[in-house]
């Protein structure tokens, strides 16, 4: 198989006494959707944060195209082509939709912002996601939870990053928007992007995942194929069955 775009090797991260990640190995390739599942507190968001430059691992390495990189900040990760939707969305409530979409990556004409280009691009992205945002010039605090989430997803897609990390991107979306986001993930994969999808929704995973990484108490418990049954996943997540028992599991 090709060299993974993004890999973690032996990554550990602790917050005070909590071991959020312990010796985690993971790979995501081009043309691939890697799903990450696990119970609450399993370390999924921490894993996403390490991939997106929001957390620095205490031990272990992040590899980009097989070469070790240090992701000092989300901006540094973004510059290397890794974009993320964080679970808490990370939108600035006082800024409007366009301002949030382009925050940190504004389009400029000479020294000044190019509001026209940004606003047009904003509408294009939001239409692509079938977002029902009434106007892009209202502060995002006036949007519903689902609308905010669509804005956060749209922001991750700006500039066509190589790796897109999505931490529960459909958690508060309606049926139609969820379908659009999943569609979009499939399209991203077709276009050759690597996608890391953290999700709780079994439907999401079965629809789009190529491989499913199960985290338990900060450790990689198992890696399944995309067509693993929900029962198998549930068993691995909660520990109801010993690891390796499901016959479709692909042990590493």
């Amino acid at each position: 198989m090709s060299v993974p775009v993004l890999s973690l090797r032996g990554v550990s991260k602790r917050f005070g006494g909590v071991r959020a990640l312990v010796d985690v190995d993971a790979d995501v390739h081009e043309h691939e959707v890697l799903a990450v599942v696990g119970d609450n507190g399993a370390g999924k968001s921490t894993l996403a944060g390490v991939l997106a430059g929001a957390h620095r691992p205490d031990a272990g390495q992040v590899l980009l195209d097989g070469r070790p990189v240090v992701l000092h900040s989300p901006a540094a990760a973004r510059a290397l082509g890794i974009a993320a939707v964080f679970q808490e969305l990370a939108l600035v409530d006082d800024l409007d939709v366009v301002e949030n979409l382009f925050l940190g990556h504004e389009t400029v004409r000479g020294p000044l912002l190019d509001e026209v280009a940004m606003e047009r691009e904003a509408w294009r992205l939001l239409d692509q996601l079938a977002a029902s945002v009434p106007t892009v010039r209202d502060p995002v605090r006036t949007l519903s939870g689902g609308q905010r989430q669509v804005v956060a997803v749209a922001r991750a897609l700006l500039g066509s990053p190589r790796v897109v990390v999505l931490d529960e991107p459909t958690a508060s979306l309606g049926v139609r928007q969820t379908a659009e986001v999943l569609n979009l993930i499939v399209r991203l994969r077709e276009r050759g992007h690597a996608v890391v999808l953290v999700s709780h929704q079994a439907g999401d995973l079965q629809a789009v995942a190529d491989r499913i990484l199960v985290l338990r108490l900060g450790r990689v418990h198992d890696v399944f194929d995309g067509d693993a049954s929900y029962e198998d996943l549930l068993a691995a997540m909660t520990g109801a069955v010993r690891p390796g028992t499901p016959n479709r599991a692909v042990r590493r």
Binding site: A84, E88, A90, V92, D93, L103
Partner: peptide
């Protein structure tokens, strides 16, 4: 952005 929500601004790059 920094004044409105420092953490969100940082995560946005």
């Amino acid at each position: 952005a920094v004044g409105g929500d420092r953490r969100a601004a940082m995560l946005a790059g």
